[in-house]
């Protein structure tokens, strides 16, 4: 296996799952070591850790520990994931109305839409329309920048 064929992502995901399990187990023990508190968490965490170990051993034996999966590389989707993350994080600042319009417009530009009229029209109509609908339907206040006024 050459360096280019290697993919550490799978191993990292496995380690992250084992890490989460260990952290959660210790957090539960920290809260209380009473049987009632650990009745499900302790055995389940131990089972998860045992399966992770088994998976590691099996992959080591097969020589597939760092094998690259047969799927589209993650970096091709990364801009979309980043854009979505930016959208969610901007909701409190830009409001559901403006953030949604900007997110849709940015996504369309990213994916090659060059009909500016359609792009602008759709982003504004859908973004404001959905934000307005949900604001109307939901019993909680939704942060808006323009529609609120």
């Amino acid at each position: 296996m050459t360096t280019r064929d290697r993919d550490y992502g799978d191993l990292l995901v496995l380690m992250a799952l084992a890490g989460f399990t260990l952290w959660y187990l210790f957090d539960a023990i920290r809260v209380s070591s009473a049987v009632q508190n650990l009745l499900l968490i302790l055995p389940l965490a131990l089972i998860v850790l045992a399966i992770v170990l088994l998976e590691l051993v099996m992959r080591l034996r097969k020589g597939t520990l760092l094998a690259r999966p047969d799927a589209e590389p993650l970096r091709q989707t990364l801009p979309v994931v980043g854009l979505f993350a930016a959208y969610v994080m901007s909701l409190e600042t830009l409001g559901f109305d403006v953030a949604t319009v900007l997110f849709i417009a940015a996504f369309l530009v990213l994916k090659g839409e060059r009909n500016w009229l359609l792009l602008g029209g759709y982003s504004v109509a859908f973004g404001f329309g959905v934000a307005f609908f949900f604001a109307l339907m939901l019993p909680y206040p939704m942060h808006m920048l323009i529609l609120q006024g």
């Binding site: 994916k111 949900f134 909680y140």
Partner: peptide, 28 residues
Amino acid sequence: PMRYLIPSVLVLAVMGSFGLTGNMTGPA
């Protein structure tokens, strides 16, 4: 087209999740 469908559905999911929790916990 997917370039219209994807952001629209993501927006629906975000708004819907806000509707379920009533705060930013849902979208996060």
